[in-house]
């Protein structure tokens, strides 16, 4: 198991800070949701965690080791990040795209074991029928599943997903999050998901952090974070939070001045 700690991370592109003093600890086999309005720093946080961006202050520790000192390939064996929108420029078969996830584990040639891993992943995600299709000919939902398959083939200990469901229909949203949830449960990995849909966040995550203006505004189990007061404060929206069949739902009413 891998333990991730984000300690006092501060990040800015220009003079305006995007992240101010963010601290997170990720538990084992945990699905952590990151919610917050646009521009609150969700994506930047994920990018800092996977060392795509380097924070100006603070550090990110993986099993007590600062990721800045880790070799890129070693980091890639432990964490996989899936950006919000991935645009494949050149044609590639689904199989090759998923095989790409083995990159941190292989040299120039792919081994038999890597091919087996790809087959396993395709089966797990029910993508076998698409294996030889060109990824560019598939729908957004199918593509997103394939990028997740690629990340799973990478065999990371932590999955970082930026808005994995933002452009998907309601069925694909549930399928994709089910896949992630199942992987977390079965493989014992952890996931950090930046997500806009508060209902999906409430339904799938074990814990939620709510960001606002680069700060962590609230953190805890979904029912403690997704309260009308918090949502009003962070988003400036008046909501009702209701309980239906044991699940929590956020019903928006109207935008209001932030409290």
């Amino acid at each position: 198991m891998v333990k991730l700690e984000v300690k006092n991370v501060k990040f800015r592109y220009t003079s305006v800070p995007i992240l101010r003093d963010v601290c997170i600890e990720l538990a084992e086999s945990e699905m952590l949701g990151v919610v917050g309005p646009n521009g609150s720093g969700k994506s930047t946080l994920l990018r800092c965690i996977d060392r795509i961006l380097t924070p100006q202050e603070g550090c990110i520790l993986l099993d007590g080791q600062d990721i800045k000192e880790m070799h890129l390939m070693d980091l890639a064996k432990k964490m996989a990040y899936i950006p919000q929108s991935t645009t494949q420029v050149f044609p590639a078969s689904v199989f090759d795209t998923v095989l790409m996830g083995r990159r941190p584990h292989i040299g120039w040639r792919s081994s038999e074991e890597d091919i087996e891993k790809v087959l396993e992943t395709l089966k797990l995600l029910n993508l076998e029928d698409l294996a030889m299709s060109d990824i560019k000919s598939l729908s957004g939902g199918q593509q997103q599943k394939i990028f997740i398959a690629c990340a799973l083939a990478q065999e990371p200990k932590i999955l970082l997903l930026d808005e994995p469901t933002s452009s998907l229909d309601i069925r694909h949203q549930l399928e994709v999050l089910d896949i992630i949830k199942n992987s977390v449960v079965e493989k014992g990995i952890s996931a950090i998901i930046a997500i806009h849909d508060l209902n999906l966040a409430a339904r799938y995550t074990d814990r939620i952090i709510m960001m606002n203006g680069g700060h962590i505004y609230a953190a805890g189990v979904p029912s403690s974070v997704l309260t009308p007061e918090n949502i009003n404060h962070a988003y400036g929206v008046e909501v009702d939070v209701i309980n239906h069949n044991g699940k929590l739902y956020v019903l928006p009413i109207r935008p209001v001045a932030k409290m």
Binding site: D50, L75, A80, I82, T87, F90, M100, F147
Partner: peptide, 14 residues
């Protein structure tokens, strides 16, 4: 090949 999937994804692949 990894670059073809975008810089961020390529970085995440090490």
């Amino acid at each position: 090949n990894a670059l073809s999937a975008g810089d961020e994804r390529a970085k995440s692949l090490g």
